[in-house]
Simulated scan of single mutants.
Amino acid sequence: MTKLYIVRHAHSTYTTEERTRPLSKEGRADANALCEKLSMYPIDIIVSSPYQRAVETVKPLADYLHKQVHTMEGWKERTLVEGGAADFQKAIEAVWEDESFSWPGGESNVEARDRGVQALNQLLEKYNGKHVVVGTHGNIMTLIMGAFDTNYDVNFWRGLRMPDVYTLTFEDKELARVERIDL
């Protein structure tokens, strides 16, 4: 059994620059609380999206456990539209209504899900039988989980908190169980 603790990042201070958007003061406090909660689990490795807010969310745990945060591009947030969306709600609705639709310079749900599932499979192969924390983002997290169960959809995404943690337990590459960890 391989356990992936999928962590949606804590609250961030909004900037248009996706890669370097930092956690807010509230987000940093929540990352510390997340550390306290997840440090009770037998964590073997910590992986994250390369985006600053995702790394900063799992960094307190890594520091506490004396582990390194390994970044993987496949866990970055989906690119919705190049340069940012003028109307985020309209942009996000369009990609969820038509799985193959993408805005200029953006990824469709199909493209982002394929990228995310590939990253997940890489972890399952490399860390078979281990407990892995993964710092990531709400949309890509939902798309990956939706590849295994269609109940993980836009409504699930809308209900996610910052941070939020779901444990995905795999038997080889078969998803056996999903559990939410209360923070």
Results as ranks from 00 to 15, higher is better:
123 L>M: 15
109 N>L: 05
74 G>Q: 04
102 S>L: 14
139 N>D: 06
57 T>W: 05
97 E>W: 04
45 I>G: 02
168 L>I: 02
70 H>T: 15
176 A>Y: 08
84 G>M: 03
70 H>Y: 13
98 D>A: 15
154 V>T: 04
78 R>G: 05
168 L>D: 01
149 D>M: 15
153 D>C: 08
41 Y>A: 06
121 N>F: 09
140 I>L: 09
160 L>Q: 08
173 K>Y: 12
78 R>M: 10
81 V>A: 09
169 T>N: 10
170 F>G: 02
82 E>H: 02
143 L>Y: 09
127 Y>R: 09
155 N>H: 14
86 A>C: 10
175 L>H: 07
110 V>Y: 10
71 T>K: 13
159 G>I: 10
49 S>P: 07
124 L>G: 12
113 R>Q: 12
114 D>I: 05
50 P>G: 03
111 E>I: 12
160 L>D: 03
74 G>R: 13
72 M>R: 12
67 K>C: 02
101 F>Q: 07
173 K>D: 07
158 R>I: 10
99 E>P: 10
136 T>M: 04
146 G>D: 11
71 T>P: 06
108 S>H: 08
105 G>P: 01
122 Q>I: 06
138 G>E: 09
107 E>F: 05
51 Y>F: 14
131 H>L: 00
54 A>I: 00
181 I>F: 12
71 T>V: 14
41 Y>V: 01
57 T>K: 11
122 Q>V: 09
153 D>N: 15
177 R>W: 08
175 L>V: 04
176 A>C: 04
117 V>I: 02
141 M>G: 01
143 L>M: 14
120 L>T: 15
101 F>S: 03
107 E>Q: 05
84 G>P: 02
47 V>L: 11
84 G>H: 12
104 P>N: 07
64 Y>N: 05
80 L>P: 09
155 N>L: 11
84 G>F: 06
